[in-house]
Design a protein around this nucleic acid. Sequence first.
DNA 1: CATTTGACATCTT
DNA 2: TAAGATGCCAAAT
Length: 119
Amino acid sequence: MVSRDSEGTHNRIFAVVRRIPRGRVLTYGDVAALAGMPEHARLVGYALHALPEHSSVPWHRVINHKGGISTGRAWPGGELVQRALLEAEGLEFDANGRTSLKRYRWAPDRDDAPGPHSG
DNA sequence: CATTTGACATCTT
DNA sequence: TAAGATGCCAAAT
């Protein structure tokens, strides 16, 4: 029973992000789709922006479609923080600061298995 | 209440 | 692959 749309919407997003396992990442569009609001990736990023620091939501596992970090001016230095957190989970970044979405993109169907040749 | 800005994605060139 | 333009909803001013 949600009287507020924003709260319900944001809540949905957080719920999806929390489902992201460790060592995996999702794009804003994917999170939005799983949250029930496809093509509305902006709302996902916006929700994460409103995410409090005491939140147990692995926001750092959400990246843009280019496989990079788009904190932008909204978070000076955030690119370094998110990248550090992802690296701590075992992810690899390209010289351009991009990851392999083909390799780290998480799917609701796939529990884990980073790759057919990764083990 | 209206205008501007914003953790993005997608199409076109 | 990279750069420019557009659409969407919500928050801030």
